[in-house]
Simulated assay, not measured.
Amino acid sequence: MPAPLTVRPAPSTHTDNAIALACGQEVVVRTYGSKKAGETLPLVVHFHGGAFISGTLDNGCTVAHLFEAAGARVVSVAYPLAPEHPFPKPLEIGYGVLQWAFKHRARLAGKGAQVYLAGEEAGGNLAAGVCMMARDQRHPPLAGQILLSPMLDPCVGTASVRAATGAATDCKWAQGWHQFLRSAYDAVHPYAVPSAAQRLAGLPPTLMLVGQDDPMRDEALAYAARLEAAGLSVTRHVFAKAQQWPDALLAPDTRPCPCAKEVQDQFQRFFATTRCPPSP
């Protein structure tokens, strides 16, 4: 398979810091972007991909830079990986970072900053699961969730996955699900598999982005359709030029991605339609 084509927008500064969560644990987060005095920006809590079993903050920099280029501050999470840390540990850490980001949102993104969850591939699953946790805990309030090629189907049997994997009897996504889920019970837990959730009411607006030849396309669009059927606000877009998604989202490169401008435009439009006026 040829090397993935990826995007690296203009270099920017980012900082890595270990933060203390309310549960008493520490986690490293990488913060992208900056804000001017008096400015209020969207604040995105972001989860990188890696099929639950691999990936670092570096694998999240392509998408994080695209969010930054769209005018957001980004807090990217170095969540723990399976198999050492299967479900629910990554979700618990992710929810802790969301609470931390909301508490510090004025410093990070300005007074009254709206908070979003986002992720690609396995990170899209975590973002969707943490979104449900926030709904059920009634805190913090979210302006939206942004899911790029999210892993949502532990059966790994959709037509788009089969088209991408061919005659292979195993794939990295199947391996990742196997390591992430500890039992059959986990496979029907709504935080582990948000697409299987019976209750969708109360979730914030969703932006769903996939590629035309994306292995995750069918499961992502099926979840978007379920959200819509539940009466929720959903914006979906299928990129014709999203080459080798989701892999291209995980491997930073200096070569330009044909869909970078389209992705940034989708982010900006979603921010514009979901952000509320800053609270006084």
Rank of each mutant, 00 (worst) to 15 (best):
M1D: 14
P2M: 12
P2T: 12
P4L: 12
P9I: 02
H14K: 08
T15D: 14
D16A: 03
N17M: 13
A18H: 14
A22P: 07
C23Q: 14
G24D: 02
G24M: 00
E26K: 15
V27E: 06
V28P: 03
V28T: 15
V29H: 05
T31H: 05
T31M: 10
T31D: 00
G33W: 09
K35T: 13
K35F: 06
K36M: 13
G38P: 06
G38A: 08
T40D: 11
L43F: 01
V45N: 04
F47M: 08
H48D: 05
I53N: 12
S54K: 13
G55C: 05
G55Y: 02
T56P: 10
N59A: 11
T62C: 14
T62R: 03
T62V: 15
H65P: 00
L66Q: 11
F67P: 01
E68Y: 07
A69R: 13
S76W: 07
V77W: 00
V77K: 11
Y79D: 06
P80G: 10
P83N: 06
E92C: 07
E92K: 11
G94H: 01
Q99F: 04
A101M: 05
H104P: 03
A106M: 01
G112D: 07
Q114N: 15
L117S: 11
A118V: 02
A118R: 03
E120L: 06
E120A: 14
G129C: 10
R135E: 08
D136A: 10
H139T: 15
H139D: 14
P140M: 10
P141V: 08
A143K: 06
Q145L: 03
L147G: 07
S149G: 05
S149P: 03
P150S: 08
S160I: 03
A163K: 15
T169C: 08
C171R: 00
C171P: 00
C171H: 15
A174W: 00
H178L: 11
F180P: 03
L181Y: 11
R182H: 04
A184P: 00
A187H: 01
V188G: 05
H189Q: 09
P190E: 09
Y191D: 06
Y191C: 01
A192L: 11
A197H: 09
Q198G: 09
G202M: 08
L203T: 03
P204I: 04
P205E: 08
P205N: 05
T206A: 15
T206Y: 04
L207S: 10
M208P: 10
D213Y: 13
P215T: 13
P215G: 12
M216Y: 00
M216G: 00
E219K: 07
E219D: 04
E219P: 07
E219Y: 07
A220K: 04
A222C: 09
Y223S: 01
A224T: 10
E228A: 15
E228K: 15
E228I: 02
A229L: 12
G231Y: 08
S233R: 13
F239H: 12
F239I: 09
A240D: 15
A240Y: 07
A242F: 10
Q243E: 13
Q243G: 06
W245M: 14
W245K: 03
W245G: 05
L250Q: 15
P252W: 03
T254K: 12
P256N: 05
P256V: 09
P258L: 12
C259N: 05
K261A: 14
E262C: 04
D265I: 02
R269P: 01
F270Q: 05
A272M: 02
T273W: 06
T273I: 10
T274V: 01
R275G: 13
